[in-house]
Structures are given as C-alpha cells and as structure tokens.
C-alpha cells in the first residue's frame, strides 16, 4: 500500500515538474500585468496583441513547412538510394548521412557560415536560412524512412517491375505507398525540428528576420524596449500553441483508438 503510494507520488512529481511551469505560463497569459508572480486582473489583453507578432509566426511556419517539405523529398529519395546502394560505397555514404544527426548544431551552423563565405555568398540570407534548415532536418527524414524500407518485402519492387511497371512507376505506385508512414513521420519530425530551432536560425537568418525562437530570445534578453514590451504576448502565443498541440495529440489518439477498434471487430 505504502509502496504504491510512493510509486504514484513519484509519477505525480515528475508530471508536476513538466506541466506546472506551462500551467503558470498559461495562467499569467490571462493577467493584465506584465510580470509573472504579480497578479493584477484577468484579461485577454495580450491575446488581443497577438497581431503584433504575426510576422514572426508567419516566418516560422513558412520556414518550417517549406524547409520540411524539401527535406522530406530529399531525405526520402536519399533513403531509397541508400537502401539500394550496395558495397563499400553504399556503406560509406550510409554512415556519412547519419553524422549530421549526432553532430552538434553549432558545428553545422558554423560550417554553413564558412561554406557561404568560401563560395562568396552572403552568409546571412533567406536562402541560407532555408538551406540551413534543410541540412538540419533531412538526415532525420532519412532516419525515419530507412526502417520502413527495411520492413518492406524486397520482392514488392520486383513484383511491380514484373507486372510491367517502369522503375519510376514502381517507385511511386508500390514503394512510396509502403514507406508513406515513415515519410510522414519524417516530415513531422522535420517540421518540429525547424519550429524549435534557434542556433541555425540565429546564425543564418538575415538581420531583422525573426522566427518565434529568435524573437522570444530577444524579448527575454530584453535587447530592446520594444522586445521587452512583447514578452507577455509570447505567453499568449505559448498558450495558443499548447492548446493546438494538445488537441492534435488528443484527436490523433482518439482516431487511432477508433481504427484499432474497427480492426478488432474484423
């Protein structure tokens, strides 16, 4: 009985550490004042000001979706290529493609800066920023697609050829549908990584171009008067993001359960 009590207590403690800070943030996003810890009055004031940071949000979402899409295409093709490449060359390329995953982001960012300087391009540019995010996320797409390829019955591709498909048709009609869950996971992973990213964005983004992460940092570091004004708005934004994430998780879980139930009936 006591053992059970402590076990439950421990779980509760862990969850508390995760969720209480978020909860505090959400509560104070409805506070009329600016400072956390000093409750003034319930208000939607900061939600009303969300429009002030709409550019930042748009920048972030566009960057995430576009770079993740490109990274998913490149990563998927790369994974297929890697999976079918044989011999020593295949092994070397396979290993090399996984290094960016474990590599520190700072190294990637600095390396890209140097690359742009060597080829004589402006190292802070929108193009560079997108390239940076694709370089960051594509290896994760490869990583999530490869297991699906390994799971796939290798004779499926041959069966498609056998039935008259050209290699390209076989790829789109048979291989791609088979690995689609992996591709989707890879895409979501890429979006998440890009949304969160600070280091590469801070290093490569054009001056004055902010995503949520760089903007939040600037606001907290109180680099400018305007930035400090915006801190409570980010509390409101955090709340919105949290609610969106929560609903996505809940909806997908409910759907998964429904599908499981339907399969169970059969």
């Amino acid at each position: 009985m006591i053992k059970k009590f402590f076990a439950r207590g421990w779980v509760f403690l862990v969850l508390a550490f995760i969720y209480i800070p978020i909860f505090i943030l959400i509560v104070y996003s409805f506070n009329n004042g600016k400072t956390i810890g000093v409750w003034e009055q319930f208000s939607f004031k900061w939600y009303g000001k969300l429009g002030e940071i709409k550019d930042v949000v748009l920048n972030t979402v566009l960057l995430a979706v576009i770079s993740a899409t490109i990274a998913t295409i490149l990563g998927t093709l790369g994974a297929i290529g890697l999976y079918y490449s044989k011999g020593k060359f295949g092994k070397v390329v396979n290993g090399a493609s996984q290094i960016p995953v474990v590599n520190s982001e700072v190294v990637t960012a600095c390396a890209l800066v140097m690359l742009f300087m060597i080829i004589g391009a402006e190292h802070r540019s929108l193009f560079g920023l997108y390239v940076g995010h694709i370089v960051l996320t594509a290896p994760f797409v490869v990583l999530s697609v490869i297991p699906k390829l390994k799971q796939m019955d290798s004779s499926l591709y041959e069966a498609a050829l056998d039935l008259g498909a050209t290699p390209t048709q076989a790829l789109f009609k048979v291989v791609l549908p088979e690995i689609l869950p992996g591709v989707f996971t890879g895409f979501m992973l890429a979006v998440t990584l890009s949304l969160d990213d600070y280091i590469i964005t801070a290093t490569l983004a054009p001056l004055g171009y902010d995503t949520i992460s760089t903007a939040v940092y600037k606001a907290i570091a109180l680099t400018t008067e305007k930035a400090s004004e915006q801190v409570p708005i980010y509390r409101a934004l955090t709340t919105v993001i949290f609610i969106i994430t929560l609903s996505v998780v809940v909806i997908s879980n409910v759907r998964a359960q429904k599908i499981a139930k339907r399969k169970g009936v059969k």
Partner: peptide, 28 residues
C-alpha cells in the same frame, strides 16, 4: 528489363501489394 518481358512471376512470399485490395492487386 523485367517490365519489357512477356513473362510474369509468382513470388515465393507472394509479394502482394499490401496497400491495395484484391482487385487492385490483380489489375495492377
């Protein structure tokens, strides 16, 4: 290449396309 040969194969582990139903497998 195999897709140009008037030869069809029944594979050892069947190699049916899991994402297609029976009709679409046969009509492939």
């Amino acid at each position: 290449p195999p897709n140009m040969r008037p030869i069809n194969t029944v594979f050892q582990r069947y190699a049916l396309f899991p994402h297609l139903n029976v009709y679409d497998n046969i009509a492939f």
